[in-house]
Amino acid sequence: MTPRPYLDITPTQLATLAPGTRLIDVREPDEFTGPLGHLPGAELVPLGTLEATLGGWARQAPLLLICRSGGRSEQAARMLARSGFRHLYNLAGGMLAVRATPVAQPQG
C-alpha cells in the first residue's frame, strides 16, 4: 500500500503547525464567506483553479488544505503532491470539524 503524500490533522492539532504554514481553502467563494466561515489567514483558492494558481508557489513550503468536510482538500493535497509539493497537511473533517470542536473558554 502506497503511503499518502500528506498528513491528516484534526482541528485540535492546528496550533501545532509550523509558523509560516500557508492555509489554502479550496472551497467556493460562497462557502468561504458562508455560515461555516473560514480560518483566520486562510487564502481562498477554489479546487477548480488550484492547478492554474500553484505555478509560483514554493514546493518546499508547508501547506494546509481546507474544505467543508475534508474530501476536496484531500483531492487538492494529492494534486499538489503530484506537482512536487512535499509538506502537505489535510484538515480532516474540514470546517465542519472545526465548528464542531469545542473551544477552551477563558477562566475568570
Rank of each mutant, 00 (worst) to 15 (best):
N90V: 12
A100N: 13
T21I: 08
V98P: 05
F85E: 14
E31F: 01
W57Q: 05
P106M: 10
G37P: 13
T10I: 01
L64C: 03
L36D: 08
T12W: 06
A100V: 04
E51R: 15
G56C: 11
H87Q: 15
A77V: 00
I24K: 06
T33M: 03
A81K: 10
L96N: 14
L65K: 00
A104S: 15
L17I: 09
G71A: 14
Q75P: 00
L14K: 02
P102C: 06
H87S: 14
P5M: 08
A42Y: 04
L44W: 03
Y89T: 09
T10L: 14
R4G: 01
H87C: 07
H38P: 05
G108V: 05
R78P: 01
A58W: 00
Y89I: 04
G20K: 11
H38M: 05
V103C: 07
V103G: 03
A81I: 00
F32P: 10
A61T: 11
L39P: 00
L80R: 03
L54A: 13
G93Q: 11
D8M: 07
H87G: 03
L47Q: 09
L17Q: 06
P40Q: 06
G70Y: 08
Q105F: 03
M95N: 14
Q105K: 15
R72M: 02
A61L: 07
F85D: 07
D30W: 11
P106H: 08
P11S: 10
T12H: 05
L65H: 02
L80C: 13
Q60I: 00
S69K: 05
T10N: 02
Q75I: 11
S83C: 13
G71Q: 15
G84T: 04
D30Q: 11
M1I: 10
R27Y: 12
L80K: 04
E74W: 00
W57I: 04
A15D: 12
S69W: 03
E43I: 10
L80V: 04
W57S: 03
I66P: 13
